[in-house]
Amino acid sequence: MPSTEPVFKKIETLLTTQRLAVLSTQSPDGPYANLIAFVCSQDMFRLFFTTPRTTRKYANLKADPRAGMLIDNRSNDVQDFHRAMAVTATGGIVEITGGEQEDVTKLYLSRHPYLKTFVTSPSTALMAMEVGRYILVDHFQNVTEMRMP
């Protein structure tokens, strides 16, 4: 049984250094994947991202909120096979509305200040993944799972 702390640290490092994630949703035609700009909550329980409400991913999530997110630090060279790390987060996705919106927007813009125009548009939705578990892959095939309480 690996100890929690190093795993937690690795995941935290990935979540706080990376800006982009691959979001995977399900559509009636099958799985669907997108790049998104994300930020994680301080307790790592939630991953926030934004999307225009006219997109496929938004429609998919409205129909089925279950989703996966892949965050990794690969650099597209051979070293990736032993050096790169990836974490997959799975969970349910909700749209953030009401009182919490302001605080989350602030947090999101602190990570992605250049997206201000996009984020503050009325046609953009602020979304949160409530993470059920993180699956960390390092050293090529070393897989560790962390369930969130």
Binding site: L109, H112, P113, Y114, L115, K116, T117, F118
Partner: peptide, 11 residues
């Protein structure tokens, strides 16, 4: 500091 560099690039 303000993120303007990225916003200008996007624009």
């Amino acid at each position: 500091t303000t993120g303007l560099r990225g916003r200008i690039l996007l624009e």
